[in-house]
Design a protein around this nucleic acid. Structure first.
Lengths: 229, 229
DNA sequence: ATCAAATGGTCTATAATTGGTCTAGAAAAG
DNA sequence: CTTTTCTAGACCAATTATAGACCATTTGAT
């Protein structure tokens, strides 16, 4: 949705981008933003547009702009213990997924409904159309694992997986993960996703869990291979 | 309504997809949706269809559309970090622990150090002095499981377990849990804790994981027994 | 202290974008 | 068949964006 490469950015879009930079911490308290003329250039928008975005952010209390000087960040993002999660390494994340997802498969067998399976089926189809589009595949993959945990009807588990997805969406990671996604790897993942879905459909908890373990092992290998290069 | 594959999307489907984007967080408050013409293109539907979906979402209060400007997100999805965790039921929590803790045992075998084991040993001793003090036992028990996950040296897992511990510390739960803790039950738990610690010490990952499963099964039984009374 | 550069503030005429509305026909559902 | 829904286009009105200019203040170097 937001992927749209050369989509023209409006004031609202630019405001949203900067707002996120601030909440994420890439722009910290008292930092000065680039000059309006530079921003307008780098966002590919006219200065007036950037200016409108900044005016909005000022009203919202994110920034303060001083004439002749610049625009400064004035906002302490609520520290939601995010720090603990932000520093997670890819390997830590893999271990957490190893703990959670196989058992989530078992629970999905117990509590999953037809509509859940249909949605997962649709996501499998979508992923199979993405052999050459790592970015789109990655999004669909995240959705698939989210749909899987939704089968469990366990709000706590869903929340945990969402938190993990947040970590995975960090920019650096996303870029690195896309590097590991060649055509071959995506094809392997697709096969495994199908197998997992089928095992859940036929109500075979242990088989589903085992394929998930395989799936995660594959992912871990891709990861270590990528960090070697 | 057939959901499968790349079928044509109806207004209801598109509304559902966008609704999902919003609750998932990919579309946040104040974000502007892509123009109707772009949406219609990317969903492969006519503009009128997209428009119908948006009208629906507006009635539902997810979105607000301003003529000449765009369609904007007006909905703060319930901040899960509070609500999802606060509303977790004891059984949901048990399932989450079933997913996490056995694998945490395996990881503890890999990464645990002598000092970790000493600390857990000490906690075992403390718990064994608590046969008649459910409150003190409960505290030590929480510490034990926290010490266990610390063995993994995995900040993400530690954070997750801490979150779960927060849930467990809710007043109602604590009271209920204390009811299940008679002398016999505590003794059983103590035995299991010892066994888990020993299995980790002797570097037997699967044995440790299995005893943890037993342990959790025992806890689950106590729980269901308690809710029957 | 002075000057030059950089930066935000303001304005304007024009062009582009966007939602709102309508229509006629095709497709799907009952 | 009838009814509903979707499609594909067109046009309108409101809003927004563009590109450039000029000003006032701040900043930093000389």
């Amino acid at each position: 949705m937001n992927v749209s490469a050369d989509q023209k950015l409006g004031a609202a879009d630019i405001a949203a981008l900067i707002r996120r930079e601030i909440s994420k911490g890439s722009l910290q308290l008292h930092d000065r933003l680039p000059p309006e003329r530079v921003l307008s250039d780098s966002y590919g928008a006219a200065r007036g547009t950037v200016r409108k975005a900044l005016t909005r952010l000022e009203k919202e209390g994110f920034v303060e702009t001083r004439p002749g000087s610049g625009t400064y960040v004035v906002h302490q993002p609520d520290d939601n213990s995010a720090s603990a999660i932000e520093h997670a390494t890819p390997l830590e994340l893999m271990d957490a997924r190893f703990a959670l997802e196989p058992h989530i498969c078992r629970l999905s067998v117990l509590h999953g409904r037809q509509s859940d399976f249909d949605r997962m089926e649709e996501l499998c189809n979508r992923m199979e159309d993405c052999l050459d589009d790592p970015v789109a595949f990655s999004d669909a993959d995240t959705d698939f694992h989210r749909a899987l945990v939704e089968c469990t009807r366990n709000g706590l588990l869903i929340w945990i997986i969402d938190q993990i997805a947040t970590v995975r969406s960090e920019d650096d990671w996303t870029r690195m993960r896309h590097l590991t996604l060649d055509r071959r790897t995506i094809a392997t993942y697709n096969t495994q996703h199908r197998q997992i879905l089928n095992a859940i459909r036929t109500r075979e908890p242990e088989r589903a869990a085992n394929i998930m373990k395989e799936h995660l092992e594959t992912a871990r290998l891709s990861l270590t291979r990528a960090s070697d290069t």
